[in-house]
Every structure is written in structure tokens, then in C-alpha cells.
Design a protein around this nucleic acid. Structure first.
Length: 293
DNA sequence: AAGCGAACCTGGCTGC
DNA sequence: TGCAGCCAGGTTCGCT
């Protein structure tokens, strides 16, 4: 499901309830998701206060007053929802006595503010992990991670430097999380179309002989920022699984120009091309062969 | 080193 | 109605 805009949408939905709340109970409905939960997972969180909820690329990061950080990834089909919890301070008045859990509800955070946060993930490609907060950026999940596309460091020059010398197609380079972190299949297709760049073009062509950014690199960096910000403002894209934490749907999918629009007219003014689908490194790429060069 | 394809898992849709 | 086949927003592993 989720690329950067969807994860950011989830973060904004969860933050008002999670940040500052104490976890009364962490209910694990199975032994793990994509990976087993870390040792003593529930015990390291229960009774502790969450001090903030951040995001890096497609990862959510909840800091805990213990000095650890809870890392959460939604995989392809993960979602969170916020519910009213036991409704009282009565010990044991937890969700599972209220019969509200659905299929694939794997993790429930029961909070001291009367809310409970439920993680649902049918495909179980998501995962959760705990690391020392002081080692967050050097831990296995993040130490090789590329530049944050909505961060201050992201611009045409860093894009050119990352892509310099790479023969791999632009589509694959933009999906490589060790170069730019947070883009996925949808927003790569959309950003390339907005920039008039072919997904097949070699990544190194965005740098000139001296390694400087070409005008196309500048336009691509700008379009990446724009499409991500516009998607966040729309609550992300809901194709099948993505939901906001209040259960509502994102609506940026109505603004797709090429993704999942094979056979439709290219929306570029005066282009007249037809959107096509091809497969690159096992993933669908949607593009206009007429205006993307 | 870089660049593919396969694997992980479930559900929804299409076509016979 | 049933069933086989294909497809899906991500990441990681293993083989060229």
C-alpha cells in the first residue's frame, strides 16, 4: 500500500492520540508479522509513555520514554485505525472483551487516554521493531537509507550525485531506497510523467560531464516534491488498502496522470499520446511514450 | 558492484 | 458458482 504520502497521512492521524500517551497494554495477536516481534516486545513498551511520532521514508518511528524507539512499517497492506478503547479505567476492560477486532488485526495498543490503536495487515509484509533511540539512524533499517525527498537536503544536485554513473533505468533508480527514500511505484511513475522523462532512460543522464545537475534533474526534483506534497494534502492514494486512521479514504488516486491508466489519453496538453504499461524489474510502469523521452 | 528475478502472504478481480 | 491465473502501494535475499 503505502508510499511516503500514505505513511505521512497515517502519522498525522496517529500523532494526536499516540504522542504523550502511555501504553497500558500492547496486545500481540500473533508471534510476528513479516519478522518475529523483538524479544520481550510487549514488556518493553507496556507501562511506558510515547513521547513522539515521527517518520523517515516509509517508516513510522515512535519514541518511548525508556530511550527506545518503536519502528513500524506498513508493508503493502498495513493500516492503523483509532478506536475508543475500554472507555473506563476499569482493569481488564480491554478491546477483546468488546468484540471489535476484525480479521488480520494483529497488534493493539491500549492507551491511557481511552483510545486504542489497531494495526491491521492482511498480507503481513509489515513489521515492528525496537531499537535504542541513540542508535536509530545507524541501525539496520536506516543506515543505508537515502535522502528524504521532502527534507532540506533534497535538491537537483544531490539527485545528480546519487545518479551519476548509473546505467540503471530512472524508474529503478528512483525506487532504490538507498538513493532516494520514500518513493514507490505510483509516485515514481507520476513524477517521471510530469517531468517528461522516460522511465527507461539511464539514471546517469541527469548529470552532465562534470557531475552537475541537468535542467531535467532540477525539474524532476521539483516534481517529486510537488507530487508528494499534493498527495499528502489529499490524504494519500487509496487503491485498495490505504485508509486514514479515522477509516476514511485518501483521494489522490483521482489525480493520477498515468498510474493504472493504461489505454487512456495522455493528460499532457497537446500531447495526444496514449498511456502504456510495461514491466520493469518486475513492477508495472505506466508512461506516455509520446511525451516522456 | 550492480542489476535482475524470486520470495514473502492474502485477497480481489478476470476469464473460462 | 467454481476455480485457475494474474495482479497489487514494499523489502530482502540470492544468483548472475
Amino acid at each position: 500500500m503505502p508510499e511516503l504520502p500514505e505513511v505521512e497521512t497515517v502519522r498525522r492521524g496517529l500523532e494526536p492520540f499516540m504522542a504523550g500517551a502511555r501504553v497500558k497494554k500492547l496486545d500481540l495477536r500473533r508471534d510476528g508479522l513479516r519478522f518475529p516481534f523483538p524479544p520481550d516486545f510487549a514488556a518493553r513498551i507496556e507501562g511506558r509513555r510515547l513521547t513522539g511520532l515521527g517518520r523517515r521514508a516509509k517508516y513510522l518511528r515512535a519514541s518511548i520514554e525508556s530511550g527506545e524507539t518503536l519502528i513500524m512499517h506498513l508493508g503493502m497492506s498495513g493500516s492503523f485505525r483509532v478506536e475508543d478503547g475500554g472507555g473506563s479505567a476499569t482493569p481488564g476492560a480491554f478491546h477483546h472483551e468488546r468484540g471489535k477486532l476484525a480479521a488480520h488485526d494483529h497488534v493493539v495498543f491500549v492507551l491511557d487516554n481511552g483510545k486504542q490503536i489497531v494495526f491491521n495487515d492482511p498480507r503481513r509484509f509489515g513489521f515492528m521493531d525496537l531499537v535504542r533511540s541513540s542508535e536509530l539512524d545507524s541501525c539496520a533499517h536506516f543506515h543505508k537509507m537515502g535522502v528524504e525527498p521532502l527534507g532540506n537536503a533534497f535538491d537537483a544536485q544531490i539527485l545528480a550525485e546519487k545518479f551519476a554513473g548509473r546505467k540503471t533505468p530512472l524508474k529503478a533508480a528512483l525506487l532504490d531506497q538507498s538513493l532516494v527514500a520514500g518513493l514507490g511505484n505510483i509516485y515514481v511513475c507520476e513524477a517521471l510523467h510530469r517531468t517528461g522523462l522516460s522511465p527507461r532512460r539511464a539514471a546517469r543522464t541527469l548529470a552532465d560531464r562534470k557531475g552537475r545537475a541537468t535542467p531535467k534533474a532540477a525539474a524532476l526534483a521539483s516534481n517529486i516534491r510537488d507530487v508528494l506534497n499534493q498527495a499528502i494534502a489529499s490524504g494519500g492514494s487509496s487503491l485498495r488498502d490505504h485508509r486514514l486512521t479515522d477509516g476514511s479514504l485518501g483521494y489522490f488516486q483521482h489525480n493520477f496522470r498515468v498510474y493504472d491508466r493504461e489505454g487512456e489519453q495522455c493528460p499532457t496538453v497537446k500531447c495526444g499520446g496514449v498511456i502504456r504499461r510495461m514491466v520493469q524489474s518486475g513492477r508495472s510502469t505506466f508512461y506516455c511514450p509520446n511525451c516522456q523521452k
